[in-house]
Design a binder for these strands. Structure first.
Length: 799
DNA sequence: AGCACGCCGACT
DNA sequence: GTCGGCGTGCTC
């Protein structure tokens, strides 16, 4: 028997199957989806078995070296999915497979050297290194002086030293010491009368038939490890190692909740989902529900039905929305049937959660992007909450979108997918309009709570009235008012975007490209404004093109500056600041939020991360300091992102008894992405934005591919970029547009110059073939490490 | 990705 | 003549 193996060597030349002979002792044990160690050339590496066969077309096959799993870590479905994913994203198969297993199971190859002769037969200079035939790590050896290294290399040639490859797993299963009682009740008499604690402990163990961890037993009886040790010595108690799961949620009690009664709207949207579940068919639903309309309850109840059918469910949430509040709702409803996967867990904790899924100890997974690969085998439901979120797109290879993977998996399992959002992505909503997805709508908040009222403040007007601070009068007064009433406020400042945009403070005019209708980016080095899409360039103006004012400014002030300002103008307010800087430490996020929940602060000031999932009853005011900050980054999705973010932030206010109010400060209050937040009119926003996309030929009207090339020599990268562009223009069909080459928005990273070109197409059968050819053509330069080339199909980032 | 093999200049 | 630099190609 032979095994087809994908080896752990990420390169284009090894991105195919290699045949290995299965030794007789493992004949029936080797199954597709298992990890193995194989000899590969002179070394040993890890690989995934993707198939077995009776024959091999190879004359000389080496045998498998080691079997790393007893049970496959990848199901047949996940192997297929991996192949599909690598085709879709033009990445290596091995990278796709590695994505699907927890980091703890990824192996590292260690190289070490040990002596195979007696010490005194080794050359004198290196004898002290290899005492007692102890192996020396290759990396340590390389730290030695040059003559020593050379002496070692010679010894290896002379068969005095041997090189050995070790394949090691990164993570370990956690085990704890457990005890069980061996003694029957009679032998209690063997314990001396004064050994009171020993007696108590044995009695306790006899009552509790099951084995118990030492630490737990000691705690329950109220004694110390010494007692346990004495009993082990007497032979009354036995100690053994037991594998345990790390529990990231230890000590937290989740209050069980029952399904809530549904509103008639919720009932209406849930019916077709139930039908699809009952028919065991595949269908994609787009659940468009305003903030606070009870989408989560719909998720919970549909998952519940899937579980009742004996199936499993995956629920994806954006990383920053994976708050304790969200986890609590799922644990509350499904208890121990839930595993949680997010980046806050340690490698070991993630491994444990993954194994719970693999062993079918849980039926529901709540997690961020990569949880879409949860090793379930009987999926009945996949939900993607906040489906418009860009964090579902992975920005490194394999550059996949969790939404696409979800739909592919759901097809494999013939089960429904729910994409949920208050502000769906244009792509998804357009698909719903074309009936590719089935649209479900929740227009009302639960219990007839009103949507928060939104005030848009024109900051140009504020300036004219002499208010130069970052808070408008309206926002300042409302903040004071909440402070007085003891209600809480949330202040939102978006610092995203790397490049400064240029704006006139008098009229709000923003310098934008005359060909692309996208804001220009300021380049300090040349004191020029550039368009990152078409390459257009103009001098940095000194006066406003529109009103001749000299108040032309670069924009961008961070949360720290706002915090400073806040303590100056409202010294009595207690402020919690939440951004990357204050939440980097593990658990800091939860700590700050729960402090705010206990009303230990009046104002929560933060970036993106406070826009989602936040649900506190006492929040009655939401302020957005600079609504335009996102609008002018050079990205065709900037208006969409602005609207989505403003809607999300607005949704944080007035979710319970108290009414909510929102203040949005803007220099361009008439822009539709800001203006339409006032009426919470998604449909109108969709219509307007679609017209823009149509005009500029952007998604969803076309598909986009971004090719980024980087090289340390500017002339070199320009040359490559030009070759790539002209090749694409020659090979691809007439209807396809190839733009560029232009310098990337981030024109130089780590001393490499970056250029990019963009493909816009509607239907391009030769696309993948052509892109693969390009990569093949520059393969040598890429392999030599001079040239970097990334190909992003359906990119979300254009840096 | 590693690693061996092999071809060319520098030097004992 | 030999050592070691890097370019080329292979790994079941």
């Amino acid at each position: 028997m032979f095994a087809q193996v994908i080896v752990d060597v990420p390169s284009s030349q090894t991105d195919r199957q290699f045949d290995y002979f299965i030794p007789e002792k493992w004949e029936r044990l080797v199954l597709p989806g298992m990890r193995v160690v194989v000899p590969f050339g002179p070394r040993k590496i890890q690989g995934f078995v993707v198939g077995t066969s009776v024959e091999s077309s190879f004359k000389k096959t080496k045998p498998l070296e080691e079997l790393l799993d007893i049970v496959p870590v990848l199901s047949e479905e996940l192997i297929d999915l991996g192949n599909w994913l690598s085709e879709q994203t033009l990445s290596y198969k091995i990278s796709a497979f590695q994505l699907m297993i927890p980091a703890a199971l990824r192996t590292k190859v260690k190289k070490q050297v040990h002596s195979i002769v007696e010490g005194n037969q080794l050359p004198e200079g290196i004898r002290s290194l290899f005492i007692e035939k102890q192996p020396v790590l290759w990396t340590d050896l390389l730290q030695q002086s040059k003559p020593i290294i050379e002496e070692c290399l010679r010894a290896i040639k002379n068969n005095q030293l041997e090189v050995e490859y070790l394949v090691e797993e990164k993570g370990k299963k956690k085990s704890e010491k457990y005890i069980r009682v061996l003694a029957s009740a009679e032998r209690l008499n063997d314990i001396p009368a004064r050994a009171q604690k020993q007696k108590e402990l044995v009695e306790f163990l006899l009552q509790n038939k099951a084995a118990i961890s030492v630490s737990e037993a000691v705690k329950q009886v109220g004694t110390t490890r010494q007692t346990v040790k004495a009993l082990i010595d007497k032979g009354l108690v036995e100690e053994f190692e037991q594998e345990v799961y790390r529990n990231p949620l230890a000590g937290i009690d989740f209050q069980r909740t029952e399904p809530l009664p549904l509103t008639s709207e919720q009932q209406k949207v849930i019916t077709p989902i139930y039908d699809t579940l009952n028919n065991q068919s595949h269908r994609v639903f787009l659940l468009h529900g305003v903030t606070g309309s009870g989408k989560t309850e719909v998720y919970l109840q549909t998952i519940n039905l899937a579980l009742e059918q004996g199936k499993e469910a995956i629920m994806l949430v954006p990383e920053i929305a994976l708050t304790p509040q969200m986890v609590e709702r799922f644990k509350g409803r499904f208890g121990s049937k839930v595993a949680v996967l997010h980046s806050g867990l340690s490698m070991g904790e993630k491994y444990d959660e993954w194994r719970k899924i693999q062993r079918k100890e849980v039926q529901v997974v709540v997690g961020a992007r990569s949880a879409i690969f949860a090793p379930f085998t009987n999926l009945g439901m996949i939900i993607i909450d906040e489906e418009h979120e860009s964090s579902y797109k992975q920005e490194e290879n394999p550059r996949y979108h969790a939404r696409d993977v979800a739909i592919e998996r759901a097809k494999n399992h013939e089960c429904p997918v729910i994409l949920g959002s208050a502000t769906p992505s244009l792509e998804s909503f357009a698909r719903a309009q074309k009936n590719v997805y089935h649209l479900l709508t929740l227009k009302e908040r639960v219990q007839n709570r009103p949507m928060p009222s939104v005030h848009i403040v024109d900051m140009r007007e504020e300036l004219r009235l002499g208010n130069r601070s970052m808070f408008s009068n309206a926002l300042f007064e409302k903040l004071q008012d909440r402070l007085q009433k003891g209600e809480q406020s949330v202040l939102f400042l978006n610092r995203r975007g790397y490049s400064t945009f240029v704006m006139c403070r008098d009229c709000g005019y923003v310098a934008s490209c005359e060909f692309c209708d996208i804001s220009l980016t300021y380049h300090r080095a040349q004191n020029a404004l550039k368009c990152h899409y078409c390459g257009h360039e103009e001098r940095m103006p000194t006066t406003c093109e529109s009103c001749d004012s000299e108040h032309i400014r670069f924009f961008g002030s961070g949360t720290q500056k706002v915090e400073e300002e806040l303590t100056r103008v409202l010294p009595e307010a207690r402020v919690i600041r939440m951004d990357i800087d204050t939440t980097r430490r593990k658990g800091a996020h939860e700590k700050l939020l729960s402090a705010f929940g206990r009303q230990e602060a009046d104002i929560l000031l933060g970036t993106q991360m406070i826009a989602k999932g936040l649900d506190f009853p006492n929040i009655t005011l939401v302020g957005v300091i600079a609504a335009d900050s996102m609008l002018h980054i050079p990205d065709f999705r900037s208006a969409e992102r602005t609207f989505q973010l403003l809607e999300q932030v607005s949704g944080r206010a007035g979710r319970h008894q108290l009414l909510g109010e929102v203040v949005i400060q803007s220099y361009t209050p008439d822009h539709y992405s800001i203006d339409l937040v006032q009426s919470h009119d998604y449909d109108q926003f969709f219509q307007t934005e679609m017209a823009q996309r149509r005009f500029g030929q952007y998604p969803p009207y076309v598909y986009v591919v971004l090719i980024t090339m980087a090289h340390s020599e500017l002339m070199n990268v320009i040359h490559v970029a030009e070759k790539v562009t002209s090749f694409l223009k020659r090979e691809l069909s007439e209807e396809t547009t190839v733009l560029g080459p232009v310098a990337s928005p981030l024109a130089r990273i780590k001393d490499r110059y970056r250029y990019q070109c963009m493909i816009k197409y509607k239907n391009e059968p030769k696309l993948r073939k052509t892109l693969t050819e390009i990569r093949q053509h520059f393969n040598r330069e890429i392999n030599q490490g001079h040239l970097q080339m990334t190909i992003d199909l359906q990119p979300y980032l254009f840096t």
